[in-house]
Structures are given as C-alpha cells and as structure tokens.
Computed example of a mutant assay.
Amino acid sequence: MQKFPLVSVICISYNHQDYIVSALNSVLNQSYPNIELIITDDCSNDSSQQVIKDWLINHPDVLFIPNEVNLGNTKTFNNAAKKARGEYFVDLAADDVLLKDCIKRQVETFTNSKFKKLGLVYGNIELFDENDKFISIYYNGKEKPESGDIYEMVISRSTKICSIASMVKKEVFETVGFYDENLAYEDLDLWVRASRLYNFEYIPEVLAKKRELPNSLSAHFLKRNNEKSKHLHQSTLTIFEKIIVLNKTKREHKAILKRMTFEMHKFIYSRNFRSVLKLLLLAIKAKKKTYF
C-alpha cells in the first residue's frame, strides 16, 4: 500500500445551501494530503447548486455531479462512487463537518490495525444545531462501541455506529455491493452486510460534527401519516428480512428481536399499522429460530 493511499470523499447535497460551503471547506482543510473530493447535488430546490458552482470557481479540479431529477441518497452516492478512484470512501452529508485530522486518523487506523480483514473504521462525533451550537457528544460514556467482529452489536442496536465519522474500504463495497437503491436510508444495511464479512475498528476520538436539523432524515421516522415515514419503515423491514437470512446463531436471532422491539415503538407512534403487522410477522419468524 502506498504511503498516502487516495481517499475519496463523496459529499451529497440536498437543500443544504446554508451549510455546504462549511462541509466542503472541512474536506479541503484536512491534514491528510491525498484526497479526492466529489460533490453531487440531488436536484435541490433551494440555491444549493448555485452555491456549489460559486465555490467551484476557486476549486475547478473538484468533480461536481448535479442530478437532473431527485434520485435519493442511495442512488446519488452509488452514481458518484462509480467515478471515485480512492482506496477508501467517506460518505459526507453536506450539512456535516469533518474535523481537521479525521481522515488522517482513519487512514492511520487502517494502516496500523491488528485486524487482518478490516473493512471499516469509525469514530466519535459531536452533535450541533443549525446555529453551530453544541448539543452533545454521540458516545457519551454509556455506550460501548466495539471493534473486531461487531455483527451482533450492529443488528441489536446496543450501540449505533457514527456514519459521519466512518471510512469504508472500497473493497467492501465491491464485495458486498454498494448501497441498496431500493432503501430510503443506506447506512444500517451496509453495516449489516459488511460486518458479517469484515472486522470494524472504533477510534475513541471525536472526528466529525453532525448537524441536527428539524428536517433531518431521522426526524421523519416518527412523523404520523407521512409517506416518507412509511418508506423509511418499509426500508427497516427489508433490512430485518436480510438480517434473518444472514443470522447464524440463536444468539443473533435474539439480538435482532431486541432491535425489532425498539423499532416497533416507532412504527406504533407514527401510526404505521401496516408496518406494525409486518414487523410482528417477522418477529415471529425470528423467534421461531431461537428454538432450533
């Protein structure tokens, strides 16, 4: 491996006119010297594309891919990833920020890891609001982010992975497949499929800042009688179906039952009763597998 392997940062913008410049500058300000930045805008209906074009005047070597129609995060990332040349990928939302040494620490961890089949590294993050005001630390001491074979941690939701502070080896995408374009959100599905085959390593440092906005994707999980909420819940059900197939032990089936209980509360709160029924049927299927 070369001394400074190329890292591809794919920055996806959708109605991020107020934040995109901070995200892009955080990539340029990295202490790591070998970075390829690819910007893609998912047909924003605000001024995001113009803000990006203005920024590109001083950075003409950066690739910009504007979508003519809204494709969603999964398709938008996959299209950009096909053009990426890096050995490692970072998926950066345009309202988030990488701290100066983020990529340096991630590459160092890959280089010096004791794990032979390391596919992903992840760190801690700060949560902040639309006014750049600090909210909290993601891993605040109660959680126990793990390293190594963390498949059970991923499926049980005992500790969530910070996607914004993650770096994924390109080989992982090539082996397990890129983001599932049928899903409304991408990270959990990739973590599940990747952690079944690869080791992950946690970096106990704050590496990035994630912006919490009222219209963030996570806020839609609990919205009532909402089509976007229903799509999110259907995606969760699809991921659960995959997990049941990937599980190998009774312990793992018990772990996914724990996560199903957590998701059930969200389904009920959002009054998505069709998804509640589907989840109950999946839970019965998983429960049966704990007996044999």
Rank of each mutant, 00 (worst) to 15 (best):
K3S: 14
F4W: 12
P5S: 08
Q17P: 00
I20G: 04
S26K: 05
N29L: 08
Y32F: 10
D41K: 01
S44G: 04
S47P: 03
S47I: 10
V51M: 04
K53D: 05
D61Q: 14
F64R: 06
V69I: 15
N70L: 09
G72N: 02
K75E: 02
A80L: 00
A81M: 13
K82D: 13
K83E: 06
Y88E: 00
Y88N: 09
D95C: 13
L99C: 00
R105A: 11
V107P: 02
E108M: 14
E108H: 14
F110D: 08
S113R: 09
K116M: 03
L118Q: 12
G123N: 07
L127Y: 05
K133A: 08
I135F: 02
I135W: 04
N140D: 01
G141C: 07
K144H: 08
S147G: 03
I150L: 05
I155H: 04
I155D: 03
K160V: 11
C162Y: 03
S163T: 02
I164A: 11
A165R: 00
V168Y: 06
L183Y: 09
A194G: 10
R196A: 11
Y198F: 15
N199T: 10
F200D: 06
Y202R: 06
Y202F: 11
I203M: 04
E205Q: 08
A208R: 10
K210I: 05
P214Y: 00
H220Y: 15
K223H: 04
K223Q: 01
N225P: 00
E227L: 14
K228C: 02
K228Q: 11
S229V: 09
V245Q: 14
E252H: 10
M260I: 06
F262H: 11
H265W: 07
R271D: 09
N272R: 12
V276T: 04
L280S: 12
L281E: 04
T290K: 04
F292T: 10
